[in-house]
Structures are given as C-alpha cells and as structure tokens.
Simulated assay, not measured.
Amino acid sequence: MNEITIGDVTVARVEELHGPVGMTPEQFFPGWPDRDWQDNRDWLVPDHLGAEDRIVQVAFQTFALRSEGRIILVDTGIGNDKTRSAVPAWDHLSSGYLDNLARAGIRPEEVDLVINTHLHVDHIGWNTRLEGGRWVPTFPNATYLMPRLDVEHFDPSKNPDIANGVNAGAFEDSVEPIRAAGLVQLWEGEHTVDGNLRLVAAPGHTPGASVLQLTSGTDRALFAGDLMHTPLQVSHPDHHSCFCEDPATARTTRRDLLGWAADNTALILPAHFSGQTALEVVRSGSAFAIKDWGPFPAY
C-alpha cells in the first residue's frame, strides 16, 4: 500500500517518476569525496545509486494528506506538456500523475490545499495543466500556499537571471496562472495549516524553502522537501547538492531539522528519496544515522 497513517493524518505517496536523474554523485554533490559513496555502495545500490553507471537515483512524488477533513497535497512535481529545455527528460513530459492521484482516491477538484515547499521547477509543475492552449489551475478549488520569499526570488520580472536557468519558464506556466486565478496564499516564517500541520521556514536550498511538520498525538513526521537529496546526507549533513542556492545556510538548516526529527522520533519524508522513501534517524556523534526505513514499499 502507498498509504500510511500518522496520528490522525493519512498520507498517500503519489508517484510521478522515479529512476536515474542523469547525474553522477560528483555532478549532483560537488566536492563530496568519492570514498564516502564507495564505502556505502552496498546499501545505496540500487535504490539510490546505479550499480554500473553510478547515476544518482531519485523520485518525483507528491505526498497527499487527509487531515481534519481536508485533502492537502505537498509539492506537485514536474508537470506535463511544459517546455523544459534545460532538462530534456522533463521537456513536454507525459506522465500518469493524475491517474496515480486517482488511484489514491483523489480527484483534482477535491483538493483543498496545495503546499509548494519551495518553487523549484520540479515542485510546482502540476500546479497547472494545459487546457485549450492555456495553463489553468489543476486543482481549481484549492488554496496554494507558497513561500513569499520564493515567489519574490523566482519572479523573472524581479530576478531576470532566473529566466536563463533550470527554472526557465516555470514561474510563467506554474505560478502566474495560480496568482491570476486568485488562489495563492503567501506566508513566511511559520504558518499553521491546521491542528496537525505546521509549515516552518527551512532556508538554504532556496531563500523560501520550507518543511511541513506533522504533530498528531504522540506521532511526529517531517515532510522535508529538498532538505536532503540522498540518504547519505544523514551521516554527512554538511554536504549539499548543486541545486542549493545558499550552501552554508542549507547545512545549518539540515542539521537543525535532522536534530528535531531525531529528538522527536519523527518519520522523515524527503521529496526525492526513491526506494522506501521515508526514514527515521538518530543522533550519532556529531552527525546522524538511519534508525529504520519505511513504511512505504520500495519503488
């Protein structure tokens, strides 16, 4: 089953894609010594690292939550039909995402809230879909929660350099139509979603990057967005991905939130972990260690 229960909240894992991301560890995590990858190869392969080609393996997925009578989506992936010339594998993608959402028992019009943990291209794509030649909200009855700092940072009218990077075109086709429809709610710092869920700023990967903390009864979970891209960052939290815009701040944020998860026995659900997706961690010296995997089945 791709659905679990955490306290009073049910969580479904909705896949868009999983597999090789087309980058070696040296490309994805610049400056990270190869010996760390070699020393951990026995458990990184095949879910997180290709056996022969050493290509990093990742997932693109949404966590669909049912909490206090509402359906809440955390991140919306890459999206179909969009021009993504910087990443050819995503260019005019045609995935079965909406079919997978339907298998989780969710129709787009039933979604109450969409949370974009940050506004990188692979977290906002299904905010919209192509209809009659126009980009329209995929979830027309939802409020879309977006970090104010990221909306300002990724707006090409305010930051022209964005138009030339991997996010080229994403603001125009996946954020602007949502704003035009009056569905965006901006937040910063902290934001209470409901009695179980709270958004917390987690800067570094992007200026407005965030995580979603779940506290329900004695259960805890952390929907970690892009806090980590590989489980090897649990034991090596000071290494960052090439996509982190402020590596020093990202390191501090990662250590702080891994500490919160360890101290609260929280299930961590990063956006991009393949395999079993979720994990628990414990403190281990000056870093952390994986306590257990699960409870989702491996991809």
Results as ranks from 00 to 15, higher is better:
D173L: 09
D150Q: 07
I162C: 04
G285T: 05
V234H: 08
L269P: 08
P33E: 02
P177G: 02
R198Y: 02
H229S: 06
A59M: 01
P160Y: 01
F29M: 13
R129P: 00
T24L: 04
L258M: 10
E190C: 08
L222D: 01
A250L: 02
H229C: 02
A181N: 06
E152Q: 12
V184T: 12
M23K: 15
Q185W: 00
N116I: 01
P46W: 11
T265A: 10
V136R: 12
A298G: 09
H191P: 00
A51Y: 12
Q38H: 14
Q213R: 15
G96L: 11
A201N: 12
P237R: 08
G165E: 12
L214M: 06
L98W: 09
G204F: 01
R251M: 13
S67L: 09
A181W: 01
W260A: 01
C242P: 00
E172K: 14
G19Y: 02
A224P: 04
F171E: 08
V184D: 08
V114E: 05
T192R: 14
M1P: 14
G105L: 05
W43V: 09
E131D: 14
D194Y: 07
S235A: 15
D53G: 04
D99P: 00
I72Q: 03
I71Q: 13
E52N: 15
A168P: 02
A266K: 06
A170M: 15
L65H: 03
G169W: 06
E26C: 08
A224D: 06
I162L: 10
Q61A: 14
A102K: 13
W260Q: 06
E16N: 07
P33S: 03
A51L: 06
Q185N: 02
Y299I: 14
D112E: 07
L119D: 13
A102L: 15
H239K: 11
Q57S: 06
N167W: 03
S284Y: 10
D194P: 05
F154K: 02
Q276I: 00
A89T: 15
F273L: 12
A180S: 13
E172R: 14
D122K: 01
A271W: 09
